[in-house]
Nucleic acid binder design. Structure first.
Lengths: 326, 326
DNA sequence: GTGAAAGCGCTAACAT
DNA sequence: ATGTTAGCGCTTTCAC
């Protein structure tokens, strides 16, 4: 591996000069700079980012913690993060927590060791106060209970209200909610939006109409089967994400029931596959790619800037996309 | 940030001893080790991995280069890579090349600078010989033309043959191929498998039946529309991946034609959404998750081992999953 | 404008 | 068994 010293030897200057030339320090002679830059190009010299990181205490690296890369919602986010990272010179560690708290925690310590400049996280548990021990800069893709950090997310409550009100306006009054893990913020807020919409229209909620599982398709399938098996099955279901909605649709079809005639279904996220002609899922859309991009840019601001940009809460507007399942 | 020297001071030993204790060197006194380990735990001390990387010339970090994280095929791979990386103590850089050669090349230099121990790559272009300038260890998720590196992939030709032969046995003789970028290995091999199967059954291929675009859904839509518009539309289509198949299905439906009655469709990959009840796409399955895991483990072997494991070619068996679109 | 030298946090060879 | 020291590749004072 070619080092800065090797290059300095070839150029006949001290390696400090090479460093200055390559880092565009103004004090270096224009001619020597050109010579050095040319030489570096010819030799294919690349500064060792690890060594740079050690002295500069900045690694130009961030961590992206998400629960499930397999849910098409997250790849969109990741793509946004990654595109923006690329443009700003950062590289991103992919940390798929797999809905495991242990793994989330473990990743945090690993990322700290690897000296990332910051993290973007869609958390799966409540960090309490331990969090700031681990990272200096972070942006959350979720509501977050401690004020110190920036978060960017869509208005989950509003989105859910829109979805449920739409169903109510369509004449439904037996509307069920199928959700993911109870403790996940997104789930709580979407449940709350559902409850508020029902309350605003003086609609009672049958307790069995509120189901919680996890955010995967199979879980939607299971919960919907339960709903279908109860004495008074709902005439509509609001699912806390599209994967759950897809699972619910499957259960409904297996029962021989028609969508939306017998049961209407509305999802959340608007993953790409929701728009397939065969699916045509009505759902609450999130600007996933833009959220990813924004998260990264906000994080960079925070890394660069200092305290004044902390504690920003960026709330984006959801959009109800009406298709054929409702 | 707490450093090893701070810790040494607190423990009342030299920092070399701390290093030895924490790295389980045998020569250190069992009692001092326990004391140090305890202290480190209490203080929440984590060794700086950047500093470790600099001296050990090993970063416990790898790069994963894929063309499109948005295609559900790749998240499955990524999850496999990531799970295995986690178990073996590695962290992975997500490098989404976005089908851009420039970005792929750029990532290679960035990863080199960041001193990754190796890379796993689903390449989008032919590196010629420049490649070994950049990385020491690599495994390809694709066929690869230069022998020095390990590659792991399924038998694309065989898989395509299986798919096309299945269509032929179903009585089809006007079978079209819609593919991705012409120069991508996967595409070439799948095209070849298609051609071989046709030839083996003495079936002529109408040149317009071979369409190439990119590997995205919209491209499948466009290509299928073209096929539908030609004088003698095919009675079956073999798509080089599931996204293309999904796009083709959309075009067929828009024409008011029935699947599989009027036109049969077969895809490749078996992404999760191919199995949705509403889709039920017949497709050639790849063991995506296992491929990812295997790729990572093979890479580690290579990093650790040396030359003897280079140039392994691991060819996995595809499986034809017959569903409702054929 | 350039060189010499210190030091980032750690490991490992060399002493003791 | 433990301490001392060199050095990984780089940036950044501090001299000149």
């Amino acid at each position: 591996m070619l080092t800065i010293k090797d290059l300095a030897k070839k150029a006949g200057v001290s390696y400090a000069t090479v460093s200055r030339a390559l880092n565009n320090h103004p004090e270096v002679n224009e001619e020597t700079r050109r010579k050095i830059v040319k030489l570096a190009g010819d030799c294919g010299y690349r500064p060792n980012a690890i060594a740079q990181g050690l002295v500069k205490k900045e690694t130009k690296t961030i961590g992206l913690l998400i629960p499930d890369i397999t849910n098409p919602f997250y790849p969109e986010i990741a793509r946004g993060v990654e595109d923006a990272a690329n443009e700003t010179g950062y590289t991103v560690f992919l940390c798929n927590t797999n809905w495991s708290v242990e793994r989330e925690l473990n990743y945090l310590t690993v990322l700290k060791q690897k000296q990332v400049d910051g993290i973007i996280i869609a958390p799966i548990h409540d960090f309490k106060d331990h969090f700031d021990l681990w990272v200096k800069s972070a942006v959350f893709i979720s509501r977050v209970n401690f004020p110190k950090y920036t978060s960017i997310l869509i208005d989950n409550i509003r989105g859910s209200q829109m979805a449920v009100e739409y169903l109510i306006n369509k004449g439904h009054c037996h509307i069920a909610f199928i959700g993911g893990q109870k403790h996940i913020w997104d789930n709580q807020d979407r449940l709350q939006g559902y409850q508020q919409a029902m309350a605003m229209h003086n609609l009672a909620i049958n307790p069995v109409y509120i189901q919680n599982g996890d955010f995967k398709r199979e879980s939607g399938h299971v919960m919907m089967k339960k709903l279908l098996a109860c004495e008074a099955p709902p005439s509509a279901v609001f699912a806390a994400n599209d994967l759950l909605a897809l699972g619910a649709i499957q259960a409904i079809n297996e029962q021989g029931l028609a969508i939306p005639k017998d049961i209407a279904v509305v999802g959340f996220d608007d993953i790409e596959f929701a728009s397939l002609p065969e699916i045509q899922l009505t759902t609450v859309a999130q600007p996933k790619y833009d959220m990813g991009k924004l998260a990264l840019l906000t994080l960079i601001d925070q890394i660069k800037g200092g305290d004044d940009i902390l504690n920003k809460k960026i709330l984006l507007e959801p959009e109800l996309v009406i298709r054929k399942t409702s």
